[in-house]
């Protein structure tokens, strides 16, 4: 699965690793200019195509046009299950115009709960209902020219309602089924997260240790919070998968929603417990840092989970963002 901007992403990654966390756009740009003559954007698809020499101005345009988001994703049934009940959703939308809407990204992951109550249907349905709601209530108005107003709900409310709506539909149509749902919406340089269950979102910021953004709504996590279980005990507890909050379990659902300011170079990882339950965090960061592109990182992560046993479906979405905090004059 090829990502466009793969070449550029390679270069950006390499350059980013050279510069400190305060890597500035100009530094990166000028380094890129001097080091690499960028290919015509049209030829990016074929990685082996010969790069054509480009002028600095053209290089700058191409650099900007190759976008703010660099995304990889992957899902795998694992080694033990006989079908995959995880679901993923990825959408990015960017504009280049004199007055442009900020870049937009929507990344979602759902892990369906097993049983003949159709875990894979629950996860797929939850994802699509939530995506539909967010696209119609956020992305389309964003792309359209419209004023913001108090008559519109706030973005955290919109995320909350999208997930609540997903829950209502799944509960109504497939009672007894269940799914986790972890949703990351990026608007410009701000992240909005909505979450239920024990799939996870992590933030990897240059120069800082990785941070888990979401809270596991699992019984063992609660017991750990209370000091009743250690992490080691929780990892092998027979009820480590019991959730107290999930999609599809009843009409009312409390959703964790919050917003977070992103910095250029931030990476966001969404993953199901098929990854975090099998591969320890140090190895996950290691694989991500070493991989040349997010897509390759995802391939490595899935392989690592399978190598560790692949006890469950494995899903992962990795987003790199390069959006500047301020546009400048």
């Amino acid at each position: 699965m090829w990502n466009d901007g793969g070449c550029m992403a390679d270069i950006k990654t390499w350059l980013r690793n050279i510069f400190s966390k305060s890597a500035r756009r100009e530094q990166v740009e000028s380094a890129a200019e001097s080091l690499f003559k960028k290919p015509d954007i049209a030829s990016v698809e074929g990685a082996a195509a010969e790069p054509k020499p480009a002028s600095t101005a053209q290089a700058r345009r191409v650099w900007e046009a190759s976008g703010v988001f660099s995304v990889g994703w992957g899902t795998d049934v694992g080694r033990v299950r006989d079908h995959n009940e995880d679901a993923l959703f990825v959408l990015t939308g960017e504009q280049e115009a004199s007055s442009a809407a900020p870049p937009f990204g929507l990344f979602m992951l759902a892990d369906g709960m097993g049983g003949h109550q159709s875990g894979e249907i629950a996860s797929a349905l939850a994802l699509r209902v939530a995506a539909s709601s967010l696209l119609s209530r956020v992305y389309f108005p964003l792309v359209d020219v419209s004023d913001r107003g108090a008559d519109q709900p706030s973005l955290t409310d919109v995320v909350r309602e999208a997930i609540s709506q997903a829950n209502r539909v799944v509960t109504r149509d497939y009672p007894g089924s269940g799914s986790t749902l972890t949703c990351a919406m990026i608007l410009g340089d701000r992240l909005f997260m909505g979450h239920v269950g024990d799939s996870r979102a992590y933030l990897l910021r240059i120069g800082q240790p990785a941070r888990q953004l979401t809270k596991d709504h699992s019984l063992v996590n609660r017991l750990m919070e209370m000091g009743q279980l250690t992490e080691e005990e929780a990892a092998v507890h027979p009820q480590r998968n019991v959730l107290y909050r999930a999609i599809g379990q009843g009409a009312t659902l409390e959703v964790d929603v919050f917003t977070y300011a992103l910095e250029p170079g931030d990476r966001l990882l969404l993953c199901s417990d098929g990854l975090w339950g099998m591969v320890d965090e140090a190895e996950i960061w290691h694989l991500i840092q070493d991989a040349p592109t997010p897509q390759q990182a995802c391939v490595q992560l899935v392989a690592a989970a399978n190598a560790a046993g692949g006890n469950d479906n494995i899903s992962v979405v990795l987003v790199e963002t390069w959006h500047e905090r301020s546009q400048g004059v």
Binding site: P102, D157, L187, D189, R190
Partner: peptide
């Protein structure tokens, strides 16, 4: 209402 607006886009992050 007390509003928290996203400085980039002007959308209410929460209220």
């Amino acid at each position: 209402n007390f509003y928290a607006l996203d400085a980039r886009s002007g959308w209410a992050a929460w209220k």
